[in-house]
Design a protein around this nucleic acid. Structure first.
Lengths: 234, 234
DNA sequence: CACACTGCTATACGGTTGTAAAATAGCAGC
DNA sequence: GCTGCTATTTTACAACCGTATAGCAGTGTG
């Protein structure tokens, strides 16, 4: 009987629907790369018609930018949460950050594929650029916070925070890319070990360009510390 | 007079035409990112009709793979040539490699944009995967050759070549990405300095995970050296 | 149960896409 | 100058693209 047929579709509140469309977008990126980003493909993945997308988002590129932000923030929150757990020393928290960074969920090639497509859009799309700037600033802040805590640890020589964060961030990104493009090159544990080595070298004062002059040992009041120079000496 | 009009097109030998189409493909990638990769766009950039592309290449994706290989090899040859010039010590050659890596030509955002698009295709296209494997192997071989020369230098502690090459490659890639996505974060000279710092730490034996046991000092014949372990200890 | 709200689909539009193949035209060689 | 080779253009095809909008249908409320 017609009255007893399943409904053709199920209505959902707009926020629920937008999240579902974002999930479908990320799933299409994983599966098909850049070719996954069409309203018909995303609609099919979400089980809705293509028209719903431009109903809920100003444009497809707005949906893509929202997806980038969702993925970035969820990964950063996951990593940050793991770094905060239970570790007592700054060194231990940094190590947990590395483990979270190279967790299986983050080394999923699908995540990396999605990231590549997002990155490739940054230079041509203002909304993507804005999302990148926000989420990257948050990521750098988290990393610098961990390095600042390390900086304050006993026995650690004083170092320049900003270039240290740059170098560590580069090492993390580079290893992540290597692990994603060439999964057989090394295991996640090897990547964590390489980063731990970097921390060991930093704590041993082995990066001449990152070192700051040590504090004088006296208890006399010292003048205001000079600001850290933004230029790394040659 | 009709007879005196310019010819409608100029014929070219197939190899010349293929190179021109590859150059046009790279130019379109620089300008438009992934959207640049259509036969009509590439044809317009090269000043020919779209049909010529599928005449000279089995498919558009074959042209894209050929473009990736051309770009990879030309950049690697340029870097390798600069690293070989005039530097006498292994340390100096490595430093020149860094300078070549962060040369303005390589930090061109257009190069990076092209690279991102190529990378995003590796996991979905067998021809792209094959090009990547070949050119990446060549790049790693060049890097390991430089590290091997450093390894033999006087005063340098023995280290594991392969994980050292992995870590250095990751740092280079990461800094290159950072410099390309966020050009204001640091200057090329700062990136070179960070890499030089990494070399200093390696030469100082500051990476515990990379160190090998030192050679015995006696002149007795030693048994064959054990093979370097592929697994980095935790 | 009827109705109103609004989430959602179906349809349409103008445009782009990659590939194939027939036809054209440049030009080297005789 | 003519001819044949082949580089290249032109045309066509089926499919996809993003967006807009009229109208449908789910469903909560009175």
């Amino acid at each position: 009987m017609a009255r007893e047929q399943q409904p053709k579709f199920r209505r959902a509140p707009p926020t629920v629907r937008r999240e579902a469309l974002i999930e479908a977008t990320l799933a299409c990126l994983r599966k098909y790369g850049h070719d996954g980003l069409s309203v018909r493909r995303i609609g099919a993945e979400a089980g809705v018609s293509a028209g719903l997308i431009t109903h809920h988002f100003p444009s497809v590129s707005a949906l893509i930018a929202a997806s980038y932000e969702t993925l970035s923030l969820s990964l950063l929150q996951s990593i940050d949460r793991q770094a905060r757990e239970s570790g007592t020393t700054a060194r231990e928290r940094l190590r947990r950050f590395y483990e979270a960074w190279f967790a299986p969920a983050l080394l999923d090639p699908g995540i990396f594929n999605a990231w590549l497509v997002f990155w490739s859009m940054i230079s041509h799309d203002a909304a993507m650029r804005a999302v990148h700037d926000r989420t990257y600033a948050a990521y750098r802040a988290a990393l610098e916070s961990l390095l600042r805590q390390l900086h304050r640890s006993e026995g650690v020589p004083r170092f320049r925070l900003r270039p240290a964060a740059i170098a560590l961030s580069a090492l993390l990104d580079g290893l992540w890319i290597e692990a994603s493009i060439n999964p057989r090159t090394f295991k996640a544990a090897e990547a964590v070990a390489l980063c731990e080595d970097w921390t060991s070298a930093l704590c041993a004062g082995a990066f001449p360009g990152l070192l700051l002059a040590p504090r004088p040992a006296t208890r006399r009041r010292r003048p205001r510390q000079p600001r850290e120079s933004p230029v790394i000496p040659a």
